[in-house]
Design a protein around this nucleic acid. Structure first.
Lengths: 204, 204
DNA sequence: TAAACTGGTAAGCAACTACTTACTTACTGC
DNA sequence: GCAGTAAGTAAGTAGTTGCTTACCAGTTTA
């Protein structure tokens, strides 16, 4: 009796497959994930995968699209939750951190694509997402500058780079230690420093 | 007539091979580098590689050792060039930037190893290097704090994370754009912000 | 001068990977 | 209730990868 997995709609399977890829990214590194590995992680035959994605590249693209939609939605929601732009930046910082804690495979997957020097469609997608991320930040930074909340001659471009870079530093530290447990706490400490880097000096 | 490559000492070949790996890292991503690719990049037979390194893993380890020795030497030299700890931090920041500009394959290679979630000896080596990097930074930060140059309740641990993270952010941006041309300039802008994040506020 | 060593070649091997093919089984609409 | 389709299996295939083996030619050394 050849035990067949319970039939599922392509839509449901695609979601399941994407989730499996991100789970595997967290536990074994995205570069070494094989279609075989994905299939057996879900309890499916290797061949069955290709009923739902034509190629591995198409699957990889779907993963990026999922991350893009999920992350950007949360970041925008966090930003729009606050009227004051600096409060919005803090909310974005923490929302990003919490997303990484919830999905530890995501940064590994994204870094992996960014590393590819060839101008693959995958890398272009990721790069596109980062452009929109910067736009989100720039809008709040410009708003804050208009309010007079920022240092007079602050380089807003460099400030955006530092924002994203400090998140990367936190993520890398978490990857090194192997757990994301304390990340929320560390993120608050790092953002506090970032905040004092961009804010206009207050009379104490 | 089977054209044989000119004989070279193992030591010379090892250096050549390591350089080739880093060059390939810059142009094609470390995860996709094959022993075949390395061999033909030097103009050597595939089999000849294994006269100089027993396994690919041993070669990878040698690359990390090379990076470790080169980078840490430069960073310490830069730091020891300045008496004032904040000047030393700036010198380290720029020395690191210049090293990445000179060897664009290095950050790709290092990131690739950090991504591996398994506790491989490779990852352990990299993680060890980063511990020593943090020690270098912490020493200067503590010195600066003792001089009263830093903000009163600055979290030195978070400050070190932000230092390394901002470098990573710069590197990532350069990787996205595909060239490291403007990196030195961007690094100066980012460090200026970092500096104002940690320095005690001056009466203007 | 012969023996040992060293760095090179060329060919092959076992394992693995993405993907295909031929076939089976369950669900759905008419 | 049955035809068509969608989701599954099992086996294969072609290409690649890390590494080995057998052999060869200079150089060093005893």
């Amino acid at each position: 009796m050849p035990h067949t997995a319970d039939r599922q709609s392509t839509q449901a399977r695609q979601a399941e497959i994407i989730a499996a890829v991100l789970a595997l990214s967290a536990s074994q590194g995205p570069g070494t994930i094989t279609t075989q590995g994905i299939a057996s992680a879900i309890g499916l035959t290797h061949g069955a995968l290709f009923k739902h994605f034509p190629t591995k590249a198409a699957l990889w693209l779907a993963v990026i699209d999922w991350v893009d939609a999920q992350l950007m939605t949360r970041l925008h929601a966090a930003a729009n939750d606050h009227d004051h732009p600096v409060a919005a930046l803090r909310a974005v910082f923490m929302a990003h951190t919490d997303f990484v804690v919830a999905h530890p495979g995501v940064p590994r997957f994204i870094f992996n694509e960014l590393q590819q020097p060839e101008d693959s469609p995958l890398k272009h997608r990721v790069s596109d997402m980062l452009v929109r991320y910067r736009q989100l930040l720039q809008a709040r930074l410009q708003h804050a500058a208009a309010l007079g909340a920022l240092r007079p001659r602050l380089d807003l471009d460099a400030a955006a780079t530092l924002f994203i870079g400090s998140l990367q530093g936190l993520v890398m530290q978490a990857m090194l230690r192997g757990d994301t447990a304390d990340m929320h706490h560390a993120a608050e400490a790092v953002f506090a420093i970032y905040r004092s880097a961009i804010l206009v000096e207050l009379a104490s």
